[in-house]
């Protein structure tokens, strides 16, 4: 797999004619292949696809031209401080409505997402292959991603039953504790697997009612953007998951310092970055969990790559005392 190059155009990336052509009825361009339309990759913020406010980008190359619309290398927005700012505004608005939905409804939307991912499996596999995976590996990862969405779809309306409690307080009160979303969770997604890793870290917080701002894998942000197209065409309201592309080391500290963000979940091998996040988050008492990047296989493990712990990490406990009397 080629490594990321910055703002540098490779000769190999110049568009070459693809195999598809249509007949030109005028005959003027008879015999010439059709010029394909390449895709501009954009970040997914507030339900819309946007460039970085900074105008910066970074190049992501691919293993080989796959005969599709894309050139071999594409320009990916390099998210900035202001992109985080904008994402927080929409994520906050989205969180308030998302949390107010019934867990049943959230589960249905997550299931819808699974349907959409399944239906776009080929496209996602294609993107993973371009990022350097074999067809078989790509197919396995997409399938696992669909299953992960189904897993959390079925979890949305059961979380409360598992983590809530009736508290038998010694007195004339009905005491109970319920889980509640924290608010905006900022996530640094694992580098790899770029799709399954992303889904595995953004779906649990939204299952619990949070909204998410995630920095996608730096090595393969393109797949994250294709995944965002799935998000956009599922019933997920805009702003619930916001996918930024760029450098975790650059955006992570911005997350940590942003007072409106409630929690950080960072999956990165960069030990210095993990320490920075933990330190900077202290200024607003954020809930921070950093994880050294695990072996990619972990994400395929049904026991370790998913579960209640992933959801519970981004839930608050609210204890309520209600009087019992006449």
């Amino acid at each position: 797999m080629k490594t990321r190059t910055e703002s540098h155009v490779d000769a190999a990336d110049v568009a070459v004619p693809g195999p598809l052509a249509v007949t030109d009825p005028s005959g003027a361009s008879a015999g010439l292949p059709r010029l394909r339309v390449t895709k501009a990759y954009k970040m997914y913020v507030g339900g819309a696809f946007v460039r970085s406010e900074s105008g910066r980008y970074f190049r992501v190359a691919s293993e080989e031209a796959q005969g599709d619309a894309d050139p071999a290398g594409v320009n990916i927005p390099r998210g900035s401080r202001k992109d985080v700012r904008d994402a927080v505004v929409v994520a906050k608005a989205a969180y308030e409505k998302w949390e107010a939905r019934t867990p049943f409804n959230r589960g249905q939307i997550l299931y819808r997402l699974a349907e959409v991912v399944e239906s776009r499996a080929k496209e996602l596999e294609h993107s993973l292959v371009r990022a350097g995976q074999s067809r078989a590996e790509a197919a396995r990862e997409v399938a696992a991603t669909v299953d992960r969405a189904v897993f959390y779809a079925g979890f949305a309306d059961k979380v409360s039953a598992l983590v809530a409690s009736h508290n038998p307080v010694s007195g004339p009160h009905f005491g109970f504790s319920v889980p509640e979303a924290m608010g905006i969770v900022a996530v640094i997604a694992p580098e790899s697997p770029s799709l399954l890793g992303l889904a595995s870290v953004v779906l649990p917080p939204i299952t619990g009612g949070n909204s998410v701002i995630v920095v996608a894998s730096e090595a393969d942000p393109r797949t994250a953007i294709v995944f965002s197209e799935c998000l956009a065409t599922s019933d997920l309201p805009g702003g619930v998951i916001n996918v930024l592309t760029g450098y975790g080391s650059e955006m992570g500290p911005i997350f940590a310092k942003h007072r409106e963000i409630s929690a950080i979940d960072a999956w990165t091998a960069d030990e210095a970055l993990r320490a920075t996040l933990e330190r900077e988050a202290a200024s607003s008492v954020k809930r921070v969990k950093t994880h050294p990047s695990p072996n990619a296989e972990m994400w395929f493990d049904r026991r370790r790559g998913q579960g209640l712990g992933f959801i519970e990490r981004h839930l608050e406990t609210k204890s309520i005392w209600h009087p019992v009397g006449v």
Partner: peptide, 25 residues
Amino acid sequence: GVIWGNTFNKFDPTSPFGGYKESGF
């Protein structure tokens, strides 16, 4: 993190206590 209905400052070992936001985690 703790909401009291028609009462205040009640504590019990069975009732989880703790804060949101800058009241801690």
